[in-house]
């Protein structure tokens, strides 16, 4: 059975079903993720720049083909990354795309998790900041002012430790459990288990309250140099109550992802 838009929609979310090989060009200026303006009496975020609590949403069109850094340079992939990307593209074109973590109902890594156009909530206590996502039961835990755990304990979302530099939350993440994909695309750029990410997160005012997140990726396994991406997430208190997401109800069945036409991707550490 070949992959279908519906299958991708069910497993992935919206953008994935508009995936590369199949998609018609999206009309310029069209953004299906644009939300209506908030009413004037909508709750406001805390005025404390170090309080990130509340619901946020990625409204910008997602970069399905992530080919440029935030500075407009080509993503500095090495030959291994290019070969892997080619393998993923061939599989996708064949109608049996490889099943990445998200398709297999596993945590897809912090970048993908933030990039998809679904809301997330931030909850803060003194020693920990949690980003809770509507999709994939996503939880990005940031332990504040602590060292990394020993590398023997790895998680899909990595091990994240944070500290404040002025009003910027700086988060250092490494020790991933699995090879994962940077961008939400069936032919996504790879990141290795030992990738090192640094996120710089701060509140900004950009026609309304927003979070700016600049992520610097350091992964010699796949890239010849460090590179960065920049994202903005708008304040959306009206999206604070999430829709239910229960991908296990489908993927946990004996025929798993194959019923949607996906091939099983290599397991942890095999890439």
């Amino acid at each position: 059975m070949k992959s279908s838009c519906l299958g991708r929609l069910l497993l992935f979310g919206l953008l994935a079903c508009c995936a590369p090989a199949q998609a018609q060009p999206i009309p310029p200026g069209f953004n299906p993720f644009l939300l209506p303006p908030l009413p004037p009496d909508a709750p406001k975020p805390s005025p404390d720049p170090r309080n990130l609590e509340g619901a946020w949403y990625h409204q910008d069109m997602m970069e399905v083909f992530l080919t440029k850094t935030m500075h407009g340079d080509p993503v500095p992939m090495n030959d291994k990354a290019k070969a892997l990307l080619r393998e993923r593209a061939v599989a996708d074109k064949s109608g049996h795309p490889l099943a990445n973590a998200a398709v297999r109902c596993r945590p897809p890594g912090p970048i993908w998790q933030r990039d998809i156009n679904f809301p997330f909530a931030v909850l803060q206590i003194p020693d920990e900041i949690d980003f809770l996502f509507e999709e994939f039961h996503g939880v990005w835990k940031i332990r504040m002012n602590q060292p990394h755990r020993p590398s023997g304990r790895r998680e899909y979302m990595g091990d994240s430790v944070g500290h404040w530099e002025g009003d910027t939350l700086v988060v250092d993440t490494t020790n991933f459990k699995d090879v994962f994909w940077v961008n939400s695309d069936l032919t996504g750029a790879p990141l290795s288990r030992d990738a090192h990410l640094v996120d710089r997160i701060r509140k900004i005012d950009d026609d309304g309250p927003a979070l700016s997140v600049v992520t610097t990726i350091d992964d010699p396994a796949y890239f010849t140099s460090q590179w960065s991406i920049s994202r903005k997430f708008i304040w959306r208190p009206d999206r604070a109550i999430f829709a239910e997401y229960d991908c296990e109800d489908d993927v946990g069945r004996p025929d798993g992802v194959s019923r949607y036409g996906f091939s099983d991707a290599p397991g942890p550490g095999e890439n």
Binding site: K2, S4, C5, L9, C18, A19, A23, I26
Partner: peptide
């Protein structure tokens, strides 16, 4: 079957 971009959008 290929994805239907119109339907997706």
């Amino acid at each position: 079957m290929r994805g239907n971009p119109g339907l997706c959008l």
